[in-house]
Simulated scan of single mutants.
Amino acid sequence: MPRLLASYAGREAPRHQLLWAYDARLADVVRTTREPMVGQMRLTWWHEVLSDDAQVKGLGDPLVDALRAEPGIMAARDGLLAMIDGWEILLDPLPLDEAALRSFAEGRGRGLFRALDAVADTKAGALWALWDLSGHIGDRTTAQRAVEVAREYLPAKIKGNKALRLAAGLARHDIVRGRAGPSELTPRLYARLLRIAVFGR
């Protein structure tokens, strides 16, 4: 899905691909962590990398080097740091309550959309993050709560480049119907994306 969305970003596609790769790396930290303290340490490493103006921390890591080499990405540092805070919420015991889900959405979703496009509607980012979480988290109670909390971000005024409008449009389609997001890119979801791309809905 991220690769497909990035393909709609035009000249910004390479930067979008890097930011989605960064989001995936943070997700991988959460997914592979068994001890919350270890996960926090791994996320703290990323915080230190992004806060290092000398650009020494993490030198040699392919993703770190690519992020630093791409013009404009480090200018979006606030959004990238917010994403770390958002993902850290998922290290808490499940099920997550509504307050925790809002913190996740504010961090990961708003942070990601702000990093992808400075004029994006970050409320739509929070909507998208909860929709995405609802389709991937194994705890059904948390997934259902994510859908319910996501409704608080409706209706979202979707601004920004086409890639983000598509992401938010997919999320809005399911959330207004009280449905969780899919766990993978299905043919039906792909068809819906194409319809939104062509007709805007």
Rank of each mutant, 00 (worst) to 15 (best):
G160C: 08
L133F: 01
P182D: 13
G10Y: 01
L50M: 08
K57E: 13
G181N: 05
Y190W: 14
S103E: 10
R77V: 15
A150T: 11
A66T: 07
W131N: 08
L193S: 02
P2V: 01
A115F: 14
M1Q: 04
V30H: 10
W128V: 12
L112T: 06
V38F: 05
A180I: 02
W87K: 00
I158Q: 13
D23Y: 02
L189S: 02
H136M: 03
G72T: 08
V198H: 08
L67P: 01
L185A: 13
E48P: 01
V119D: 14
A156Q: 03
G169R: 02
A99Y: 00
A150F: 00
R195A: 12
R102K: 11
L80I: 13
A167L: 14
A156F: 04
G39Q: 07
L50D: 04
D139I: 05
R179M: 12
L112Q: 12
A191R: 12
P95D: 00
A126S: 10
D117T: 07
D117W: 03
A27S: 09
L18Q: 05
L194H: 08
G79Y: 04
R151S: 12
A197D: 12
A99T: 02
R177W: 05
R192T: 10
Q40V: 06
A54V: 14
A197T: 12
L154N: 07
L170G: 07
E88G: 01
A143D: 10
D52Q: 11
Q144A: 12
T142K: 00
L101G: 00
A75D: 15
L67T: 03
P62C: 05
L170M: 13
P93L: 07
A27K: 08
T32Q: 13
H47G: 11
R25L: 06
I158Y: 06
E88S: 08
R145V: 01
K159G: 14
A76V: 05
K162D: 13
A27V: 04
H173A: 14
Y8N: 12
A126P: 07
A82N: 04
K159H: 12
M83Y: 12
G107N: 03
W128K: 11
L116H: 05
A21V: 03
R42I: 03
A171R: 07
R108P: 01
Y22V: 00
G60C: 08
P95V: 03
V64H: 05
R195I: 05
E88P: 03
D65V: 07
D28C: 07
A146H: 00
L164W: 01
R11A: 15
G125L: 06
L43C: 08
L59H: 15
L166V: 08
R172D: 15
G109P: 10
L18S: 06
H47M: 02
L94E: 11
L19C: 03
A75G: 15
A13R: 12
A6D: 03
A115P: 07
M41P: 02
Y190G: 15
L90S: 03
A24T: 11
D28K: 13
L91E: 01
R110H: 08
A156G: 02
D117F: 00
P71N: 09
G181M: 05
G178I: 09
A27R: 14
